[in-house]
Amino acid sequence: MTGLTSAMIAYDFDTDQPHRAIQPLFYGYIKDGRHQRGRTFLLMTMISTLHNLSRSLGYAILAVIDLNLALRFFVGEVVAYLLYKLFRRDFYYWVRLEGILNVLMAFFERTLVKVITDFTVSASMRSVRKRVWGQSLIHNLHSTRAGLYPLPSPVRARRGSVLREYDLGANYALRRTFVLRGRK
């Protein structure tokens, strides 16, 4: 359902004439024609669904290992993205409000779009005006496969029967490398 919703957003934006008129270089990736549209929609749904499943499973495995670790990982990703936006002076959203409301609105919108794009690769949120794509591409492609990579690790010893089959070697390595650096 998540993939379907994401594909529907992208489809509606792309087939909307005003959007195509404003950004002709980006919109128009869905070809005109009944069959082409249906096929593209189906493929977008499948890509979003499979990507969402892959990433959700990666996060779930991380959460089974250590719930706090999964939360820290999520917060780390979002903070890195927001810092990147601040660094590029591209943090504020186009809806202009006054004072703190402007910051809250921008924070809210950026976080939401980041979550949706990371989990569903929604095409409409990767347009030239949004510039979300890329920041966590390596993590997106890496997380689940890394989580399932069969390496022996000390984590295995203290896990239940479910995870014995998968193992968590690479996520454990990630944890050792990035998250727990400095801790003895």
């Binding site: 998540t2 939401l112 569903t120």
Partner: peptide, 10 residues
């Protein structure tokens, strides 16, 4: 839809 995706579906 975006709010639903980010706060509930995902």
């Amino acid at each position: 839809k975006g709010i639903e995706l980010a706060t509930e579906s995902i």
